[in-house]
Amino acid sequence: MRYVDHDLVVKRMGGRKIVNYLFKGLFMLATTIALLALAILLYRIVTQGAGNLSWEFLNNFASRFPEKAGIKAALIGSLWLMAVVAPTSIILGVGSAIYLEEYAKKNRMTAFIRTNISNLAGVPSVVFGLLGLTIFVRALSLGNSVLAAGFTMSLLILPVIIVAAQEAIRAVPNELRDASLGMGATKWQTIVRIILPAAIPGILTGSILALSRAIGETAPLIVIGVPVIIQFLPSGVMDTFTALPMQIYDWSSRPQQEFQAVAAAGIIVLMAVLLTMNSIAALIRNKFQKRY
């Protein structure tokens, strides 16, 4: 006697297939909804803001009048911010990654540093703002300067850069390390001349993506007291400044309808900056495909 009745299996197969197709449709729908959300978001912002985009908008300072409001101070301010964040976070991030991948012994201290990095990545950005406010703005009396905001943002994206750099360094084959050490090179020579050059595309890609996160962050800037209405450009890292997301936040939260269109125009500028950064990252990733 047979336990499996094949006729019955065939009979029921139809129903099982229908369930399969039904759910395939549902899963597809879920994916479509996610993509649709992005499409609507982008469409809305472009249609709302495109009318306000102009040279004047890019070249004017903030104003009480929507038609005169411009984004110059915020755009330049964000660039200033990046001028502090990029070197600080990349030096700290890559240095940490080299230590963890090349020097750290497998002990508790190392395990602790690793766990700490992954936990730090989960701390809300607004809490980093509180850290920046206490340490940089008040304790070190940097005020609401480019430097205070830059340090705060650097710490915020540090875990992202460390992890990206660690992955890039880990992807360098051990054979290359062996070859260099085998010629009598010291460890540091091997790192500087072989490992870092091979890992640099990965490090750059990860760093640019992390920086693009920093350029869009708002909450820490609000907490450390970055102002909005600014009629001048910073001339040094100790000057006060404003940044793109701050300016957008201010326009968005104004009651007048006209300012919403201005905010949308600001968002287009912000998204254009992000798109440029991401394209550069993608370009680097494609240009330096692994060669070993």
Partner: peptide
């Protein structure tokens, strides 16, 4: 070494 391992 076993596998050719030139530097990139």
């Amino acid at each position: 070494f076993q596998k050719p391992n030139p530097f990139p």
